[in-house]
């Protein structure tokens, strides 16, 4: 079910595909994947991304937190001032 983007030299985050057939995932280049834009009242697009968590390098996946409330905070960058 999850779309694994592993294998890149540099770990990056990506949207997690929802129950898309494996073969389709491989055939469709990333740019052609229908972009899900988050809207209130709809399902939060699932994703996984490399993370730093309590002294360790990990992978965080949004859907691992189903059953809990999640506060998802984007910000412009580390070491920025606000």
């Amino acid at each position: 079910m999850s779309e694994n983007e592993a294998g890149c030299a540099r770990p990056t985050g990506a949207m997690v595909g929802e129950a898309a057939p494996e073969q389709t995932q491989e055939k469709i280049p990333e740019k052609e994947i229908k972009m899900v834009i988050a809207k209130v009242g709809t399902k939060a697009p699932d994703f996984q991304a490399p993370a730093y968590y309590r002294g360790k390098f990990t992978t965080v996946k949004l859907s691992d937190f189903l059953g809990k409330w999640v506060l998802l905070c984007f910000y412009p960058g580390d070491f920025t001032f606000v």
Partner: peptide, 17 residues
């Protein structure tokens, strides 16, 4: 860069705010 976006997601995975 990412803009300052803050999302509250409920236990069903629905974005509430």
């Amino acid at each position: 860069v990412e803009l300052r976006g803050r999302f509250i997601i409920d236990p069903d995975g629905i974005i509430q705010a």
